[in-house]
Design a protein around this nucleic acid. Structure first.
Lengths: 223, 223
DNA sequence: GCTAACTTGCTGATCAGCAAGCAAGGACAA
DNA sequence: TTGTCCTTGCTTGCTGATCAGCAAGTTAGC
């Protein structure tokens, strides 16, 4: 049995451990309420290590955000590629995308909480970040899928925002608004039920939104 | 010209001023980042006054939440009474309610931010508060309006949660997610556009959700 | 033995809560 | 009317705790 108390040095591993610990703590308690002391302890190192690797608390925070956004952007791209590859009706693809997005968020509580906190803080860290690009890519994907040209893409953007809201909100407010209005969000069944509701609502919404001219069971283009 | 620098004592006025200042600061910067020093200064008094009137920082926070929730509960009741008084189709009433709720939130940025912060903090302050009752009242109202019995009220709850999500989300994420997906939320026109989208989406959603048996253009009751 | 990976001691700043102080203005009497 | 007292609204000084950042240490591994 190795009695070595893990004294081996490993900067990349340490950096990652600190990033992980900081992400959890920032997401859980917020920027102000998280001390570098805690981050170091959670990462299994001393009080000073976060500062050593990242310079300052704010730079560490920025690094956490950057890593999280990179992850989303990759997920969006992967989802888009998968959708493009499959040859199904726009409606089916959209339903699958909503479902996938819902699951993605449900599996990354830290991510939602970080962005939520950013929104409450004025979101100055986000403005130039790569997060925008992920949204724009998703918008382009959904517009193309629905066969909307640029003039109508405003509708697609509204719809995309609605989808995000519907998936996002119950996860954040699982212990506040959701129970207050009689929706339990505790186990996987509850989540599954919610997801089904969201997909239904969005599909019905699309049928209504996509002008009376187009039925949308197949993609139609204007000229 | 009165050169009196407002030295007159007025405890109720002072209390209210401190509550107002605390609400703004807690909503804007969060609990941890707000010092009693700031609260006192914003209320036009000294560092110690908030503590004098409210005992401790956490009790002041609780008082802020209580006042805010009381306000929502009253608004919900007023809206419900108005809806009951009017004799219009369920669909029209619902569209009006969504629109009103949207405006209500848009005019109370502090309220949204306070609840959002509560949700991120684990919402331990809310669990026994009057907030639940407001949600339950809204749920009862919407269930009755849609003519759903208890067995189906799960759907009504899901729908209510969706309405809240759709109204709520763009306001919080006006500077994060919304612009990222191409939706501007800056002036009143943008808000109006968003509101119209939400109402449309919800109405189409209802038509889809309300089982094929009932058309819902008029309220139907089961027996 | 040298460099990079960490740790520890220190400093100045901030903050919540408490306790002591101060003064405004009503009560009450002369 | 004037003087004095006394409650209470409000302020200020103080204390212990916490924290970020820096600088000086210490050890690992090449």
């Amino acid at each position: 049995m190795t009695r070595r108390i893990e004294k081996e040095r490993n900067p990349v591993r340490s950096r990652a451990a600190i990033l992980d610990a900081a992400e959890s703590l920032f997401a859980k308690k917020g920027y102000d309420a998280t001390s570098l002391n805690e981050v170091g302890a959670a990462a299994g190192m001393s009080r000073g290590t976060p500062g050593y690797f990242f310079g300052s608390k704010s730079e560490l925070y920025r690094a956490v955000l950057d890593r999280a956004f990179a992850e989303v952007r990759d997920a969006v791209r992967a989802g888009r590629a998968r959708a493009l590859a499959s040859s199904q009706t726009a409606e089916t693809i959209l339903a699958g995308a909503v479902s996938d997005y819902f699951d993605f968020l449900a599996n990354r509580p830290n991510f939602i909480r970080l962005i939520e906190r950013e929104a409450l803080s004025g979101a100055r860290q986000l403005e130039g970040a790569g997060h925008l690009s992920a949204g724009q890519e998703a918008l382009a994907a959904i517009s193309a899928e629905l066969g909307l040209d640029d003039a109508e893409s405003g509708d697609a953007a509204q719809l995309l925002l609605s989808v995000i809201a519907l998936c996002w909100f119950p996860l954040i407010h699982a212990r506040t608004v959701a129970p207050a209005v009689g929706v339990e969000i505790q186990d996987l069944d509850d989540l599954e039920r919610r997801k089904r509701h969201v997909v239904d609502l969005v599909l019905h919404g699309i049928r209504g939104l996509a002008a009376p001219a187009a039925t949308l069971t197949e993609t139609k283009r204007h000229d």
